[in-house]
Computed example of a mutant assay.
Amino acid sequence: MLQMIVSGVALGAIYGLIALGIVMVFKATGILNFAHGEAAMLSAFTACTLVRLGLPMWAVVPLTLLFGAALGMLIERFIIRRFIGKALLSSAICTLGLFLLFGDMAIWIWGKDTQELPSIFPSTPLQVGDAVVSGIDLGIVAVCATLAAALFAFFRFTRLGIAMQATMENPVAARLMGIPIKRIYALAWALSHVIAAAAGLLIAPLTFVHFSMMQHALHFAFAAAVLGGIGSMPGALLGGVIIGVSSNLTGAYVSSAWKDAVPFIVMLAILVLRPHGLLARRQVKKV
């Protein structure tokens, strides 16, 4: 069971990272980014290309993260900025269009064949008590925990992070206080796509790299974001871990046929009791 739990936490941490990027963009700009998983897929293909060019992994990782940041800023500057403040449906259709565009772009550039990306962690299994745990799983958990801690420190202790929180809370008041909210929007999209690139690097050695590699993970990431509370970034990580562990334990002890369904059943059961999510604050509007 310990082995299944650790593996589930590793998968759930990746789902939580993807959900974290989705929640960050939604809080900053009010847009649900359905193309977030495809951005991770493009980052994984970019990493594969850099590896084939002969670059070592210690250089591939930062270059891939820079690619993710640049992709996020370009999307925000030339596409998303025109939809900020507009109806949610129009922006959702826009990101669905990006979802299809990025998938076709990947097929056009890299084809439909799967590619392999080496992991930055050793695959040698480690003995933890009575269980044998993959070094890759432990490395994924460590990286996700480090990224979460770094984001917490950024939002809590830096002026830029505090300005981003103010913009997320009330963009009108933030603008009146002199905060350049357009730059904050660009930063939010850049950070979210850096997180997507990190998730792509982490999940690629587990699933191989192909044009549809993130579609399954994106479903779970949206479920994690809703479960934790669509406005809560810690909730996104918690929701990802709950979904990853419940999926792994279901596949091991119940049936593999129910492996993908049970996490959504768990999500629905929790939302019946807490419709606003596990960690999101209840919001009341007067009409």
Rank of each mutant, 00 (worst) to 15 (best):
G103Y: 00
P205K: 01
V266A: 13
R175D: 04
Y253E: 07
V6K: 00
H216K: 00
A257Q: 12
L32P: 03
F26Q: 02
I109L: 14
L201Y: 12
S255A: 15
A225Q: 09
I120S: 12
F220P: 00
F83K: 10
F34N: 05
I179T: 11
P171Y: 12
C144P: 04
M177L: 14
P122I: 07
L218F: 02
M233N: 01
I84E: 01
A59S: 14
L268H: 06
E169S: 05
G68E: 09
S7V: 00
Q3Y: 07
T250G: 10
T49R: 02
F99G: 02
S90G: 03
F220K: 05
F155Q: 10
T95L: 09
A257L: 14
V6Y: 01
A163S: 13
P275E: 01
L249K: 06
G37T: 01
A69T: 08
M24L: 15
V284Y: 09
I107L: 15
I22W: 10
T124W: 07
V194E: 14
I5P: 03
G200W: 00
D137H: 14
A106E: 02
F67H: 01
L98N: 06
L218E: 11
L201T: 07
H210Q: 06
F67A: 14
M73V: 15
L42H: 01
W189G: 11
G139V: 13
V194H: 14
P205S: 00
G161A: 05
S91V: 03
G161Y: 12
T250F: 10
T95H: 08
V133Y: 13
A236W: 00
A196S: 15
E38S: 06
L237M: 14
M213P: 04
R77H: 11
F102K: 04
R282M: 09
Q215K: 10
F26P: 01
W258C: 02
T29Y: 04
A10I: 07
P171N: 09
G72K: 06
M1R: 09
A252E: 08
V226S: 10
Q115A: 05
L206A: 11
I93F: 15
L279H: 12
M24P: 02
I107V: 14
V143N: 03
I75D: 04
R183E: 13
R52Q: 08
L53Q: 13
L278W: 13
R52D: 05
A28W: 03
S119L: 06
S246E: 08
P205G: 01
I75N: 01
I270C: 13
L268D: 00
A198M: 15
D104G: 07
A59N: 06
Q165N: 06
L71D: 04
P125W: 05
I195E: 01
